[in-house]
């Protein structure tokens, strides 16, 4: 029998009041995410996907609709969520290890028992021996790995990632995707991953939700059939490219539906 979903997003709408009138960040979003499922939310910038993630995290209240995690409505921040942002946002004066332990301190938990877990996490992402380094002594990819360790150190149920690799160069990004995949196979969390990279979404996810802009809604829910563990070679698979093509078509449909037709052809014409 199918277990009940862990995250239920039901008819969620978000409207910001601004001096120039209300702005609709998310028009309507409804979907569910099962326990230990990795779901990417894919869409163009400004489609409200980050807002949606912040609402799931309890950092931004929904204007309408409800979000429940493990049956309980999300009404405010809950420490059992792990967050990863676009920038690593590490404390520059703290060592990698101290940065990983930051949530433990902020949650007023005992630090000593967590230290070992923090060291194991750093080791796991290939930063063994770097625990004493400060962020400026680490590369961008290493910093983001520290941030992922920090999100996992208090053993959260959910890992919420807001475009965590979009500030990295393409090669580092590929490395990070593989690293995240490894973490996934070892730590089994429920993951929500915001991205605007189609290939990244397909490579990492069990399911990809496509969001469109204006109105900002979920326009497609695509299951990615590749078995785990995965490695980079699946990106050569014709099926992989077929799925990517399908997702791209759905994103463009989203534009067309919005009457914007801002696809590549149109913009090329505009340049001609």
């Amino acid at each position: 029998m199918e277990p009940p979903p862990q995250i239920v997003v039901d008819g969620v709408r978000k409207v910001y009041e601004t001096p120039s009138g209300p702005v609709e960040a998310v028009a309507r979003a409804s979907f569910t995410i099962r326990r230990r499922e990795f779901v990417s939310i894919l869409g163009p910038s400004g489609c409200g996907k980050s807002t949606l993630l912040m609402m799931i995290a309890g950092l931004d209240p929904a204007s309408e609709g409800s979000i429940t995690v493990d049956g309980a409505p999300v009404t405010g921040p809950r420490p059992e969520f792990g967050l990863v942002f676009q920038d690593a946002t590490l404390l520059p004066w703290k060592s990698a290890l101290e940065n990983v332990l930051f949530p433990i301190r902020m949650m007023r938990r005992e630090v000593a028992p967590a230290r070992e877990r923090a060291m194991r996490l750093l080791d796991f992402v290939g930063l063994g021996g770097f625990e004493g380094k400060k962020p400026h002594q680490l590369s961008g990819g290493m910093r983001q790995r520290v941030a992922i360790c920090r999100a996992l150190v208090h053993d959260p149920e959910l890992l919420l990632m807001d475009e965590p690799f979009s500030a990295l160069d393409a090669i580092t990004r590929d490395e990070m995707n593989v690293a995240l995949m490894d973490i996934w196979d070892a730590y089994h969390k429920t993951g929500v991953f915001i991205t605007h990279s189609i290939r990244e979404a397909v490579f990492l996810s069990d399911r990809v939700l496509v969001m469109a802009k204006r109105p900002s809604t979920v326009v497609a829910d695509v299951t990615i059939p590749f078995p785990r563990p995965r490695d980079m070679s699946i990106q050569e698979d014709p099926e992989f490219n077929r799925i990517c093509g399908e997702l791209r078509a759905r994103i463009e449909e989203g534009y067309a539906r919005a009457g914007e037709a801002r696809g590549p052809r149109r913009s090329l014409k505009a340049f001609a």
């Binding site: 921040p77 420490p79 967050l83 942002f85 946002t89 404390l91 949530p103 301190r105 902020m106």
Partner: peptide
């Protein structure tokens, strides 16, 4: 950085903690 403050909020840190560990440094 706003994301740092978001992280603190999500960890239910108190304002005194945020001041001592984040804002002041």
């Amino acid at each position: 950085p706003p994301d740092m403050l978001r992280l603190c909020r999500s960890l239910t840190a108190t304002e005194a903690q945020v001041f001592a560990a984040v804002r002041f440094p």
